[in-house]
Amino acid sequence: MKRDIILDTAARLFAERGFSNTPTSLLAREAGVAEGTIFRHFKTKDDIFLTLVTNVKNQLISDIEKYLEVRTPESSMEKVVSIIKSFYVFVKKNNMEFCLIFRDAPTRYGHRNDNVFLQIQQIYSYLTEYLTQALEEGKQDGSIRSALNTKDTAGMVVSLVVGLVRAMHFGFVEPSDDVLRSVIDNIRHMLTCE
């Protein structure tokens, strides 16, 4: 229970102030625990950050799986659209947590063997692999054009959608369902037109 309070408080403070501007003394005070309690649950402040990013990754994967289970897309194209929509909705709903990934992770962790980097890479890999599978299925069922390089296209779509939600997060693009609809319409066109 104290561990969860520490994590919730850290997520809020890191989102509000940034990782570097959140000393553990403030975290302890805001969480209502002694500073030593933090270190009974986590080795370092970096360990808290890693735990938060790992939790976001795990929840994202779980939510996408549940969304597709409930929605059961009728075609592979609809599966592609569902993956995009579920990612978009998840990021919108978990904006505070994604602040860690969008703002603090790139500046704090950039080494390819860093655990935070690896967790974020797993988000990209999961989305890319899932989209690649849906695109391959679409080539089989005829809902996706057959000449498409599925792996490269999946990577481009993931980059586009991640870039979109990141731009929205920073206020460069106004968040709206119209923007998402436009992106999906363009992706449909790209995937189906010869």
Rank of each mutant, 00 (worst) to 15 (best):
T24M: 10
G18E: 01
N21W: 15
R17M: 10
A105V: 11
K57L: 02
I101G: 00
L135I: 06
T150P: 08
R40H: 15
V165T: 06
A11Q: 12
S25N: 03
K43Y: 12
Y67S: 11
Q119I: 01
R3C: 01
N94G: 01
F172V: 04
R17C: 11
I84P: 00
G32T: 13
D141Y: 02
R166E: 05
I5W: 11
T128A: 10
M1L: 12
F172P: 04
A105Y: 00
F172K: 06
V91M: 08
V183Q: 06
R3D: 00
I48W: 01
L135S: 07
I64G: 02
V158D: 01
E35G: 08
S76E: 12
V53I: 09
L191I: 08
R112D: 15
V81E: 09
L50F: 07
K92I: 14
F102A: 04
T107H: 13
N113T: 15
E136F: 13
A167Y: 06
V116C: 06
D8E: 14
S143L: 10
T192C: 05
E65V: 14
L26M: 13
F39K: 10
A15I: 02
R17T: 10
E16C: 05
L127F: 13
F170D: 05
R17I: 03
K93H: 15
C193H: 14
L131W: 04
R12W: 05
F87L: 14
R3Q: 07
V158G: 03
V158E: 00
I6F: 03
V53E: 00
V173A: 05
T44H: 03
C99I: 04
L135A: 11
N94M: 03
K92C: 14
L100S: 00
M156H: 14
D63T: 06
H189C: 10
F49N: 07
E136Y: 13
R188F: 12
L191Y: 00
E30V: 10
A147W: 15
K151N: 05
I38C: 05
K92Y: 14
V116K: 06
E137L: 11
T22W: 01
V165E: 03
T132A: 09
D114Y: 03
T150A: 03
V157H: 01
E78N: 06
M190H: 13
R166C: 07
E194P: 12
T22D: 05
S143E: 03
D8Q: 10
T44V: 13
F90N: 03
L135N: 07
R40S: 14
N58W: 09
Y109N: 09
T44N: 03
A134R: 13
R108W: 14
K66P: 09
V53D: 00
K93S: 15
A154R: 00
M1H: 13
S182N: 09
V162F: 10
G32C: 09
A10M: 07
V157K: 02
A10H: 04
N55V: 09
D141W: 02
T44E: 11
L27S: 13
